[in-house]
Amino acid sequence: MLESGSSLAIESSQINPSFRSDDVEVTWQHEIIHERPPVFHDHVSWKRGAEAIVTFRNGKAEKRRVSKLYRAPALDNRLITERTRAEARLIAAARKGGVPTPVMSDITADTIVMEQVKGTLLTQNLTESAVYKAGRMIGKLHISGIIHGDLTTSNIMLRENDGTCVLIDFGLAQVNSEIEQRGVDVHVLFQTLESTSPACADVLKNAFAAGYAETFAEAAEVITREHEIELRGRYL
């Protein structure tokens, strides 16, 4: 800090009990870019997420949850089975509520086979209009009494033929109609907007809120709660 010239005058050296790490401009470190190209063999390719491996084969996506060695085996089994089962159930429920999702064709204890959605991730196409569409879609999801539970920009796709927003990865979704849970959903999305696109996070948040309010009557209440959650989660 001294090196970067940020010493303080005595008059402006007030303490800050809720000083966040992202309030500090880091001038002493430089970004390192990581690139990991997806692996392609013939007509098969795969993607490894944090908890599952998705294999793409003949227009299908097979999502298999993998065991985590670090977890107690009983906890590991419980999480894998519960999450696979819940995910399948919730994908079906969301479709019923008018939310575009991949179509499923087979389900086992750790695997769901579904349609491979062709298009780009919202992360790679963070425009106002795309985020607005995402807002409309999440409004429908919340009306159906479903919480996504992992609403990051990597879990929303834009279909290549018509630009429809498609919601993927219902791994942590749940049936719930509480304002609090809906607020957490929106909070998670807003956090990924902030961490991946800090410069225009506010514009994108407003675009989301506009779309969300169009399809969902209680939207304003949820957005207010999201703000509360943001304040509450902090070290106070």
């Binding site: 790490s21 992202d22 500090v24 970004e31 961490s195 800090p198």
Partner: peptide, 17 residues
């Protein structure tokens, strides 16, 4: 907190609620 460096700041990816 789960934190990572991105675009000139230490961003908070996840934290306790």
């Amino acid at each position: 907190q789960v934190i990572g460096y991105l675009n000139g700041r230490y961003r908070i990816f996840g934290e306790t609620l």
